[in-house]
């Protein structure tokens, strides 16, 4: 358990709904759910979620803090926006799901091995480094995420696609040494750091 997590538990005690309202992006919408279940029925991944959105909202109201924040459910969201389009109460469900995932991650209690979470981390580190995505480095990191042998296997399986992309100049084979980022990545790093500080301050999380 991280210090932030402990601090939040102490701050909100049993009122998880209030915690979500104040800390999760679009969290103030959770109370407006009327439990019709259209979101769960509309989700293309619905049957694979441990807790579809309707249940997540109910669990938040019922104060089931640990179950909600440690579940893999909201990491399943593919941002198809079906639920947002259909919600009769116009809840931004996709955004709430991402908000919850992000909050759990920041508290350090999101499921460690969740592939979406790991890919998101790899992607962020990659793009934040130079300001532009290094696609070759991203793919390699993703392939070798689960170890050397599985990386080789994945690479071989995708080889023809890779060669095709190189031939049509969609992939630079020398990107590992010659990737061009933004002009001054240092300034970008300062900018991102400041943005994080502002957000943390707004959400009351000491960084």
């Amino acid at each position: 358990m991280s210090d932030v997590n402990t601090a939040m538990v102490q701050k909100y005690r049993n009122d998880f709904l209030k915690e979500v309202e104040e800390n999760v992006e679009e969290g103030h919408w959770v109370k407006m759910c009327m439990q019709c279940g259209v979101c769960s029925g509309s989700c293309p991944f619905g049957p694979h979620w441990d807790h579809p959105p309707q249940e997540i909202f109910m669990m938040i109201r019922a104060g089931k803090r640990d179950e909600v924040l440690t579940t893999e459910s909201m990491w399943m969201c593919t941002s198809c926006y079906n639920c947002i389009v259909r919600c009769p109460r116009e809840l931004p469900i996709t955004h709430i799901m991402h908000g919850l995932a992000n909050y759990a991650h920041r508290l350090g209690i999101a499921p460690k091995m969740n592939p979406t979470r790991r890919f998101a981390g790899i992607f962020w580190n990659n793009i934040a480094k130079t300001g532009r995505v290094n696609e070759l480095a991203l793919s390699l990191k993703l392939y070798f995420m689960d170890g050397f042998m599985s990386g080789i296997k994945k690479g071989l399986a995708m080889m023809s696609v890779g060669i095709g992309m190189i031939k049509t100049k969609r992939l630079n084979p020398f990107a590992l040494i010659s990737h061009k980022g933004v002009k001054n990545p240092k300034e970008l790093h300062v900018l991102l750091k400041k943005a994080r500080e502002i957000e943390d301050r707004r959400k009351g999380i000491a960084s």
Binding site: L17, K31, M32, M34, Q35, M58, R61, A62
Partner: peptide, 8 residues
Amino acid sequence: QRKGVIFT
């Protein structure tokens, strides 16, 4: 709901 009444 806006006023914070919880419906279960």
